[in-house]
Simulated assay, not measured.
Amino acid sequence: MKVGFIGTGSMGSLLIEAFMTSGALLPAEVTVSNRTFSKAQTFAERYPGIKAEFYNADTAQASDIVFICVKPHEFIHVVKDIRPVMTPDKIVVSITSPVLVSHLEGELNCKIAKIIPSITNLVWSGSALCIYGDTMEDRDKKRLEALFDHISEPLRIEESYTRIVSDLSSCGPAFMAFLLEQFVNAAVEETGIPRESAQQVASNMLLGTALLLTEGRMTPAEVQERVAVPGGITAKALKLLERKSSGMFQDLIATTHAKYREDLIKVSTSFYGEEVNGQ
């Protein structure tokens, strides 16, 4: 299997590194191109056997599966680059939520998928959100999911839920890290505990909580119930959190969805030349 990556930014780099370190792919199976060629060369030097290409079309032509890992507004340019070399047996995978499967199906003569990764995939954890076009056969889906199974739990979703599931899976680590940072900052400011100690304890706590919710099969409500003794310290603090955070996550979701709609309009305009509705 030959796999190409167009774009070596934050998420493109993450996928290449995760697939390399997990053994999902061998360097000789990978071709990389980037707008700045030296960045593609960096991966070829780091993982001998990876081939760095100057042109996106060369990466696409050499690959059975092509991951497009660029910003939404750059997609149309990459699509134009690779269109002449795409064939019905190849698979193009977008990792960008505002780029719809229909955008790519209308432009490329190949199979189309959209897979949204997470930073947690770098440590072979978390989910990979899988959305498939009409021409993707069952064997194609299994092929992609077998690849992502090395670094994540592949989860098939409807494209209409892309944004909200991305909030939980892909944006969620940043949101949870922000809240943890605020917790640690408050601990340091209020008590003088060394930041490194507070950070270590809080990080271990978050890891343990995640294991309770996954391997321990506890719900968030059950974790709270087990920790909070009625009338105790945790119970009183939880009431404070409930009061202070009321409406906060609704506003957060409204913000991410508004930005998604803005990006979707821009992407659709770049593909079709006019605003269109989409999921």
Rank of each mutant, 00 (worst) to 15 (best):
G23Q: 01
V99I: 08
L207W: 10
Q224K: 15
M11C: 06
C69M: 01
S33T: 10
A254K: 14
S63R: 09
Y272C: 01
S160M: 11
I76Y: 09
P84T: 07
V188M: 08
T234F: 12
I68Y: 04
G216D: 09
L212G: 06
L108F: 03
L147V: 04
S22A: 08
K39V: 09
S246Q: 15
R217V: 12
M205N: 00
V30R: 01
V276T: 13
I253H: 14
P98H: 05
S152E: 06
K244N: 14
R35W: 08
E53T: 00
L15I: 10
G247Y: 06
D58K: 12
N185V: 00
P117M: 04
V184F: 10
G4R: 05
N277M: 11
D138M: 12
G247A: 12
G106W: 02
V123C: 09
I193K: 02
Q279C: 12
L211Y: 08
A60D: 06
L25F: 09
A177C: 11
F75T: 09
A177I: 02
V3C: 12
S10A: 13
S170K: 01
S246C: 10
V123N: 11
I68T: 05
L25D: 08
R83W: 00
L25R: 02
Q279P: 00
W124F: 14
C171Y: 02
E17F: 05
A18M: 01
S127Y: 11
I50G: 07
P230L: 11
L122M: 13
A57W: 05
D138Q: 14
V66M: 00
A113Y: 10
A57D: 13
T209P: 05
P173C: 08
E137L: 15
Y47L: 07
D149V: 00
E275R: 14
G23A: 06
S125Q: 13
E190D: 13
S270Q: 11
S268F: 02
C69Q: 04
K141A: 09
E29T: 07
K266N: 13
S197P: 00
F37V: 13
T31K: 13
P98G: 01
C69H: 03
E189Y: 04
N109P: 03
D140K: 13
E222W: 03
T31L: 07
T219H: 12
E189P: 08
F75D: 04
P194H: 10
M86N: 05
E159H: 03
V79G: 05
I193N: 03
S245C: 12
I91D: 11
V267Y: 03
H77D: 15
R243E: 15
V184A: 08
D89I: 09
I6T: 05
E222I: 06
K141R: 14
G192P: 00
Q224Y: 07
C69L: 10
T8K: 06
I68L: 07
L180V: 12
P173Q: 01
A235T: 03
P194Y: 00
S152M: 01
Q200F: 11
S63M: 10
V92E: 09
S160A: 14
K51H: 14
V3Y: 01
S246N: 15
E159D: 08
V267A: 10
T8C: 15
K259I: 06
A235M: 07
A258D: 14
S203G: 05
E158A: 08
V30S: 02
F5H: 02
G172T: 04
E215V: 09
L100A: 11
T96H: 07
A57I: 08
Y260M: 10
E105W: 00
I6F: 06
